[in-house]
Amino acid sequence: MPETIRVFAGDCTTTFEGSRARTQRGRVVVVVKPDRTVLVHDADGYQPVSWLTRPDSLTVETDDAGFGLVARAGDQVLRVRSHESSGRAEYPATEAGVPVGSHPRTGEPLVRVGGAVVGLDSDATYKLPAGATVLEETCEDCGLPRMRAECGAAFELCVDRACESLDDAVRDRFDGEWTCPDCESPLSVVRRGGRLLAGCSAYPDCEAAFAIPAGVVVADCDCGLPVFETARGRRCLDGTCEAFGG
């Protein structure tokens, strides 16, 4: 579920101890984010008059007389003490992301935030493979957005891996396609240590294994392994291959 942003307003004295040492008083709005970041805004401009980003500790006290808070990060301390409180409130808050549709079951908005598609009103989270693009089309089976991911080839799948598995798609396409350079056994597509690998099928007798990069196969390397076109240019499946400066 969404976390909350706390908002306090009133006639306050703000004291900062540290590199921006100063004391100010005015009718201000104090914003406390879920990561404990504190912002103190007055009537002018967009820049806060005082702030402390992700402090190590934060103490907030409220009573009928008003409110006060102390935020600390190393030798920096931000103190806010109200003389007269205009009010305080708490609101649901999430990270802002790129809209990618709505959840087919809950109807909540879905947004892309970094490497995941998340729901604004729940814990719904669908992690995306590196470099994946979320498409406008939706999955015919579950209604969630589809994505385009490159992992040896370009695959279009549901963002929910429980609905369509990228691992299975890569395995169906490339399992046994390449040969181990150490023992000439087929390379199998496996997930090991959280990574998708082309690992020797003779494991554990042969421990050769190569992480499959985000990109598509475009050629064969002199070493016999495939060459991938990635966002950073061409590279061999073997990241240490001397043909590509490894």
Rank of each mutant, 00 (worst) to 15 (best):
I212S: 07
R234I: 00
D222W: 03
V218E: 13
E242T: 11
P48S: 06
T138V: 14
C221A: 07
T125H: 08
P129K: 03
V227S: 05
C200L: 10
V77Y: 00
S57H: 11
R88I: 10
D175Y: 03
A43Y: 01
V100G: 03
S82D: 01
T23G: 05
P55K: 12
A154T: 10
V218T: 15
T59P: 02
H41S: 00
T230P: 08
A149C: 12
Y203D: 10
G143E: 07
T59W: 06
S86H: 14
H103F: 02
R54E: 13
L144E: 04
V117R: 05
P186L: 12
H83L: 11
R27F: 00
V111S: 04
D167E: 13
G119Q: 12
P99R: 06
A93Q: 13
A209C: 10
G152Y: 11
L52D: 00
D75A: 12
A43M: 10
V28S: 02
G193F: 02
A9L: 08
R72W: 01
G246A: 04
T14E: 02
A124K: 02
S82W: 01
R79F: 02
L237W: 00
M147D: 02
G215S: 07
S19C: 03
V217H: 00
E156H: 05
D160A: 11
I5D: 00
G233W: 07
A124D: 12
V77L: 14
G193L: 05
P145N: 09
T240I: 02
A169M: 05
L110M: 02
D64I: 15
D205C: 00
G66W: 14
A243E: 15
D44V: 12
R171G: 05
T106C: 11
T15P: 03
D35R: 10
C142F: 04
F155I: 10
T133P: 04
D63V: 10
F8C: 03
D238P: 07
D63L: 09
P181K: 14
C12V: 15
G215P: 13
R148Y: 01
A208S: 15
G131L: 06
D175R: 07
C200A: 00
A214Y: 09
Y91D: 04
D220T: 14
V29A: 09
R22Q: 12
T37C: 08
A89Q: 13
A211I: 15
C236P: 08
R195A: 13
G26N: 05
R232H: 07
R173W: 01
E164C: 03
S86T: 08
G194P: 14
V227D: 04
V111M: 03
G10H: 05
P109N: 00
Y46F: 05
A89C: 12
L52M: 12
R88K: 05
G45L: 07
L128T: 10
V32W: 12
M147E: 07
D238R: 08
A169P: 05
R22D: 05
R112P: 14
R192C: 01
S122C: 08
R79E: 09
R22H: 13
E137K: 08
P92A: 04
C180G: 01
E150S: 03
Y126H: 15
V28E: 02
C142Y: 04
V70W: 02
D42A: 11
V29W: 04
S82N: 00
L69T: 13
S165Q: 11
